[in-house]
Amino acid sequence: MNAILHFSNIKLLLCGTLLLLVVESVQAQMERKRSLDKLPDPELFLSTSLVSAQTVSIVPKGEIQSAISHSFGHIRSGWGDLFGLDNNASVHLGLDVGIAENLSLGIGRTSVDDVFDMRLKWIPFRQNSSNSRPLSVGLYLNTALETLEERRFDYSFTERLSYHSSILIARQFSSKITLQISPSVTHFNTLIAQNKIPLQHTIFSALFLGRLKLNERNSLSFETVPILSDSEAIHHWAFSYEIETGGHVFQLFLQSGYLFTEQYIIRQTVDSFWNGDIRLGFAIHRVFQVKKRS
């Protein structure tokens, strides 16, 4: 009897010890806890500009973005011009720096009319994941200087300037769709009567932008510029397919206006997308780190 008691006790002892060791070894691995307690804010657009129009996306502080945009000739020119690829219509080079979390400065140059532009973008309100801020709202200012030598007239520096300002208002309505409206005022100090464009120094317009997110790295987007102060003006339209990889965003687009700076798109678009005046173009945006984040 004692032997049985002794044997069952040893079994109990061994089982108990084993159980404790198992429990202890399980406890030795820590519980995994997430370090970030909130979701990242939604990414409304893949890039800081679609084809020509600025989005509410901004170059983050400490980063610099270079962009090359290229537009070809009319697709309808057919095989003779390889559907416009033989004709280099316009090239825009741009450089933007994030100088604060919600403020960026940039410079650029468009090959047509040798236009240099300086721009400032300020996005104080950004839509967040908790929806306590349902919209992204910001301000965009652009000043352009036309440096092409004009043989007919002797322009002063001021006469060569043009301005564009927009209020950028955007919202991501679902994880897939983003829309933006940018009420804008554009002003040219000097105008030359050409291409039947009316001589209107100040133009009121509203840029509409949209993005359909196909997946995390691919999007379809559009932009158009209805001109409010001139009902007969031809509106610029562009549709873009965007691919993001690493620090790059590639855009392949079809567009009517091809001058890449907002005021020139608004003032000097003479091609009608819906009448078939369509050009192929592409852009490459590349982001670099200039300063380590604190």
Binding site: L36, E43, E63, G247
Partner: peptide, 17 residues
């Protein structure tokens, strides 16, 4: 262990990637 979402490469687009 490390929460991989805390990795920072200095470029936000690259972090996303």
């Amino acid at each position: 262990y490390l929460d991989l979402e805390t990795l920072d490469s200095g470029i936000k687009k690259r972090d996303k990637d």
